[in-house]
Computed example of a mutant assay.
Amino acid sequence: MPARPIHEPRRDDCPWCGSKRLRTRLRTPDLRLGRPGTFTVDACEDCAHTFQNPRLTPEGLALYGSTAAEEPADTRRLRAVARTVLRHVTEPESWLDVGTGEGRFPEAAREVFPYTSFDGLDPTARVVRARDAERVEEAHVGSLTDPRVLAGLRGRYDVVSMLHHLEHTRDPRHELWAARTALRPGGLLLLELPDPASASADLLGKWWPSYDQPRHLHLIPLPNLRAELAAQGWHVLGTDRRAAHVPRDLTAATALYLTRKGFLAPAAPLLTLARAADHTLSPAARRTRFANAYRVIARKENGR
């Protein structure tokens, strides 16, 4: 039996708005894991949606993402993300973290919400390890859009978080609908995504870490996401680029470049300089187009 293809056919229209006015934004190998292949990222000239084209099949995603390690957790930052919810609810009873991995976000968020029950969902068995380490109470392996998974989560949660999750999914719109199903009326959705409009993407090109090919399938501009949330009946309570910015672009790009070129011996001093530059420039970057991510919090309206 022939092996199943790892790429779908290349598409000639935008998966977000249907426009055929596409341009190639970059072509790149797998810089992070070094696996073979070249991947193309296109952008729509009408709505600015940025996406992998041709897209990996589920088999391709399993192949390229199966050994991708999590980045070290910044517990202080994760607590700050959790506090975003405090403006809208004092103590959620139940919270589902989608794409939770090892459960580092629920672990940090529990320091802010000690009486909240945190569950985790992830396509890998990492969420089971998170449960065994008592970072989450319930571990759900699979996809939120899988009807068999979603049936057991329907209407159970006061908060659903998706932190740097949507860019990995094949159908972000479907993920948002599934989050509505998992939430109780009036529940909150907390999102964080890389911003394809960031000036760092243009400056660093394929070395911009948030391109992360071939694992990131969709990079969604904030206006597009806001419009989709409104169309689905969410009430957007707030958006934030400043707080969502992570000062790592120069550091990660330098690490990718040095690893790709095989410059291992002088890496430490260069990475130290890059890290210092990221943190020195961070206050200015947060207030300009160099902010590399954005955060959205939205409410599921009662009765909808």
Rank of each mutant, 00 (worst) to 15 (best):
230 A>S: 15
79 R>W: 01
270 L>C: 05
30 D>E: 10
287 R>L: 15
253 A>R: 01
163 L>R: 05
159 V>K: 03
260 R>E: 14
127 V>N: 05
180 R>Y: 04
149 V>W: 00
120 G>N: 03
280 T>P: 00
250 L>K: 00
5 P>N: 11
192 E>I: 10
12 D>F: 01
227 A>E: 14
53 N>H: 02
41 V>R: 02
69 A>D: 10
189 L>C: 04
269 P>R: 08
155 G>R: 01
260 R>A: 15
23 R>K: 13
287 R>V: 11
127 V>I: 09
224 N>H: 04
195 D>E: 08
82 A>N: 09
235 H>Y: 01
9 P>I: 05
173 R>Q: 07
109 A>W: 02
248 R>F: 06
8 E>F: 11
141 V>E: 10
299 R>Q: 14
207 W>L: 15
9 P>Q: 10
210 S>K: 00
156 R>E: 14
187 G>V: 09
152 G>Y: 00
268 A>H: 06
222 L>H: 00
216 H>M: 12
167 E>T: 09
215 R>L: 13
223 P>M: 12
149 V>H: 00
46 D>I: 06
220 I>E: 06
6 I>D: 07
286 R>F: 09
3 A>V: 07
90 T>Y: 01
116 T>N: 02
26 L>E: 03
297 I>R: 02
300 K>A: 13
215 R>T: 08
1 M>C: 11
103 G>H: 03
153 L>M: 07
120 G>V: 08
277 A>R: 02
95 W>R: 03
249 D>W: 00
1 M>E: 12
158 D>K: 01
163 L>D: 04
86 L>C: 07
252 A>D: 12
93 E>L: 10
99 G>V: 05
208 W>T: 09
198 S>F: 07
91 E>D: 13
262 G>V: 10
289 R>P: 01
278 D>Q: 06
156 R>G: 14
189 L>A: 06
95 W>F: 09
102 E>T: 12
114 P>Y: 06
252 A>E: 14
297 I>L: 14
302 N>Q: 10
89 V>L: 15
193 L>M: 14
216 H>D: 13
276 A>C: 10
246 V>K: 07
185 P>Y: 03
197 A>H: 02
134 E>V: 10
231 A>T: 08
175 E>I: 08
261 K>I: 09
205 G>S: 07
197 A>E: 13
75 T>W: 02
145 T>F: 02
120 G>H: 01
17 C>A: 11
5 P>R: 04
113 F>P: 09
291 A>K: 01
43 A>D: 00
65 G>S: 07
66 S>R: 13
136 V>F: 03
163 L>S: 03
93 E>T: 08
260 R>Y: 11
131 R>F: 04
242 R>L: 12
29 P>D: 14
213 Q>E: 08
261 K>S: 13
